[in-house]
Simulated assay, not measured.
Amino acid sequence: MYRFEDFVLDTDRHELRRAGSLVGVEPQVFSVLQYLLEHPDRVARKEDLLAAVWGTTFISDAALATRIKEARRALADDGRAQRLIRTVHRVGYRFVGTLRTDRGVETEAPTPSRSGQVRFCRSADGVSIAMATTGDGPPFVKAANWLTHLEYDEQSPVWRHLIRELSRDHTLVRYDERGCGLSDRELDDESFGLEAWVRDLETVVDGLNLERFPLLGISQGGAVAVAYAVAHPERVSHLVLHGAYARGRIYRGAGQEELNQALVALTSHGWGEADSAHAQVFAARLIPRGTPEQVRWLVDLQRISASRQNAVLFRRAFGQLNVEALLPRVVTPTLVLHSRRDQAPPFEEGRRLAAGIPGARLVPLDTDNHLVLEDEPAWPHMLAEIREFVGLEAGALATR
């Protein structure tokens, strides 16, 4: 039995009631509602809904959309408000209300955040890029990296602390890279690569009329940030690189190209599946010390943020990145942060990155996690280094 607002979905009696009164719903609509309520912690992909409700019977996307519309109508919701049933573009649907169990315990489903206004700009090759700003003050730009979704990141235990703290004294500018999140996803293979990613960053900066700002690059976003800083030194006041690398996996020595091919194969077969080998490897490389909740969010973000096809294209393109020739041309003051026991990429790649940039400072972080989490000692260390580097007083650091 599921309770939310003044509704009760009774799965034993197969009834939907509102304030004690029966609400008439067709059996398939009831099954759709039941499936969404059974999985409030994740997006229900269209194919999952179709399999759960209709089995092997072929049902078109239009028919599913009609059942979702009827389910919303039964809940006094609609496609515009999406108060209880949220559409996740090109992925599926999610229940975003607050569930109450028979014991009175409330479980609030993760919902898209509305604190950052999402806008769109169009790159030179016609790709629509979603961007958002949060906070007040001078701009701080974060180059896009893999696995983001502007509507969900502010609630994610993997990303929310970074967004919150960098928005305290700055207007933090974020965007979903092409093929990911709310940006255009239907792209050709040539749309995945360094040149296109730098062009998207240029489009966002120009679209917001930004003149000069610190630039943050995380993971493969570091290579994009380096290339942008070389092309536009007059605009980048500080360059912050975290968990970044200058050379993709295929350039790192014997066996690495084969490992990259194995990771591509894992991605192709297990993307977005919580029990797959890919999900286990992915979480173990990015947040090996993550809690079950953090790991669940990270795996869920796979389904929300990108299709399996695009994930494979991303993985291949990351392995082929190489900006080592650009490193000596960086004239922007640079801070390189890298986890000591990072495996994606290893600490040596961060050391090489710092060694190649004139005057760059390397700060090792005492953690196993590639993405530094809020509940570990490395997080306040990392944040204090960033704030001091870009000119903010350490005393402004939020107390944990």
Rank of each mutant, 00 (worst) to 15 (best):
R45T: 10
R45V: 04
R45L: 08
K46A: 10
K46L: 07
K46D: 07
D48F: 11
D48Q: 14
D48S: 09
L49W: 11
L50C: 10
L50I: 14
A52K: 01
V53L: 05
V53N: 05
W54N: 15
W54E: 13
G55M: 07
G55V: 14
T56Y: 08
T57G: 03
F58S: 15
I59H: 04
I59M: 05
S60M: 14
S60Q: 15
S60I: 14
S60E: 15
A62P: 07
A62S: 09
A63W: 13
A63H: 14
A63T: 11
L64Y: 02
L64F: 07
L64D: 13
A65F: 02
A65H: 03
T66D: 10
R67W: 02
R67G: 01
R67S: 05
I68R: 01
I68L: 04
I68N: 00
K69I: 04
E70N: 11
E70L: 01
E70Q: 06
E70W: 01
A71N: 06
A71V: 06
A71D: 08
R72Y: 00
R73G: 07
R73H: 10
A74G: 12
L75P: 13
L75V: 08
A76R: 14
D77S: 11
D77Y: 11
D78R: 09
D78N: 12
A81I: 07
A81G: 03
A81H: 13
Q82L: 09
Q82G: 06
Q82V: 08
Q82K: 13
R83I: 01
L84Q: 04
L84T: 03
R86N: 08
R86Y: 08
V88M: 00
V88Y: 09
V88H: 02
V88L: 01
H89L: 12
H89D: 10
H89R: 10
R90Q: 04
V91C: 13
G92D: 02
G92I: 09
G92P: 04
Y93P: 12
Y93A: 11
R94Q: 05
F95G: 12
F95V: 05
F95I: 05
V96T: 00
V96S: 04
G97I: 00
T98E: 08
L99H: 11
R100C: 15
T101L: 10
T101Q: 10
T101H: 10
D102A: 06
R103A: 06
R103D: 07
R103N: 01
G104N: 03
G104R: 00
V105G: 03
V105T: 04
V105P: 01
E106D: 00
T107A: 03
E108F: 11
E108A: 06
P110S: 02
P110K: 12
P110I: 13
P110C: 09
P110Q: 07
T111F: 09
P112R: 01
S113H: 09
R114H: 13
S115K: 14
S115R: 14
S115E: 14
G116P: 02
G116D: 00
Q117C: 01
R119G: 15
R119E: 14
R119V: 15
F120T: 15
F120A: 13
C121T: 02
R122P: 05
S123M: 05
